[in-house]
Structure formats: structure tokens, C-alpha cells
Design a binder for these strands. Sequence first.
DNA 1: CCAGACGTTGTT
DNA 2: GTCTGG
DNA 3: CCAGACGTTGTT
DNA 4: GTCTGG
Length: 252
Amino acid sequence: MATTTAEGLVKFFVIDDRQVDDVPPSYNVAPTDPVPAVVRYDGQMVLTEFRWGLVPFWAKDRSIGARMINARSETVTVKKAFAESVEQRRCLLPADGFYEWEKVDDGTKRGRRLPWFVRRTDGNPMVYAGIWSSWRDRENDTRLLTCSVLTTSANEVLSPIHDRMPVVLEREQWETWLDPQADMGDVRELLAPAPDDAVERYRVSTRVNSVANNSPELLEPLAEDDQDLPASLVTTVDTDPAEDDAEQTSLF
DNA sequence: CCAGACGTTGTT
DNA sequence: GTCTGG
DNA sequence: CCAGACGTTGTT
DNA sequence: GTCTGG
């Protein structure tokens, strides 16, 4: 998953003492990396930063977090590791989009892993439904704030390559998701696959397969000749210069 | 998520 | 195959 | 009662 | 901390 927050989104946030450009962009976010997050604090939306991979408060050490990167929305309220967070500590996790790997059978054990980039069709950043937790590090008596992305079944855009996708919240849903007083029935209704026309995908280079690579070039569409897949599956990418400018200014 | 590593005591 | 590190 | 898990994705 | 399995 790639992350970086866009100006268009930040306008709607009240920023705490953290400056927007204190959160460095990442084009290849790995588990345990810091990610920007929005929580409700004093009734307002506040931009902060969490470590990706939820560490429950009862964990003996932080190592469990590297694998608690997602929480299934279908079961999140009944899983001990997540139940308290989804009821009391919901957050928004903004990003330009995410990578998803398509497994292609090439006769080897692992198979070929072909990465796609998925983003919104309307040019806005994606805002995932997230949950967070605060874990006390006994070694130095500090707090480690961590988060997970809720997942749901894939929509028609994703299902050819993967059966799951993150829960993408629309602007009118943010407030309910963040409201700790919200009715849990209303909250759970938000946990649905994104509408098919809200997202698009295009192939990117397998350079993204290594987290050592992390630069804006990772977001560049693979040339159609290199896509190695039927054209019918490939989103046509608008290379209009104005679009490029828009993407540039959206990053911080 | 992917890439890369994966192993030590005592030799039954 | 599974775990760890990034 | 205590011990052990507490998670997802994908299972090439 | 709390739940499940034994």
C-alpha cells in the first residue's frame, strides 16, 4: 500500500501540533511503517501518525504488530484482538491508493506476483476505515500507537486479481466512522466494498515487490507493452499533463 | 504485502 | 513450509 | 481450574 | 485483559 495525503483532504482536517510536512511521503508502505491517520479528538478531526500493524494493549511485545495489518470487517467485532478497538478507537487512514498483487500461475511454487496500483477514479485520496490501539512499552514507558486497515470482499474492479480489498470510506461516511457514540449497527453498515465505478487499477513495475524501493516512480503505469495481460483488463491511464500536475500537488 | 532466511547440540 | 525483517 | 491464544491471506 | 480449549 502506498500512502501520502492530499491537500484536498487536509483542508477538512484540523491539524494538531504536527505539521503536515512532518509526515514524510512513502510510495511503498510496509508493515510497521508510520502512516498518517485521522482520529476524532475533542470533537474535531485531528491528523496524527500511527504505526501500521496493530499491537493490542495486552501484547507482551510489539512483534505481533507486523502481522496485524488488516482486520476482516466481517469478524472484527468478535475478534479479541480487535473488538475493543473497533468499538472505541476508529480512525481514517488516507492514502493515494494501494498496491495489490495478482498471483499468476507460472508453474513455480510461489507463482508470479504482478503488482497493480489501485486508486480512486475521482482523483481524491483514498480514505480507509481503520482501527488503532495504544500499547505501553515497558522498557522505556512510552506509548506505541498502532493501526489496522479493515478489509472486505473485493468489488468487480479488484476481484479479477484478489478476493479482498480495504474498506474505502466516502466523505459523508467519515463522521459516523469516527464518532465514538455512533450506533454500532450504523458503523457496521459502512463496512462494504467500494462501488465499482469509484476505483480503478493499472499495472505497475515489480520494483514495488521490494520495500527497499520507495520512490514516486513506483506509481508510474507500466507501459502497455509490458503489462503482459489482456488489454481488456487494463485501465487506460490518462497522461494529460494537467492530471500529472494534479498528482504532484497532491503529495506532501 | 514481499523477500529472504531458515542451524544447533551433540553426535541415538 | 514458515517465520522474520523491512 | 490453568495454559495459551489473541490475526489475515492464501493454501504453489 | 479476556476468551477458549483442555
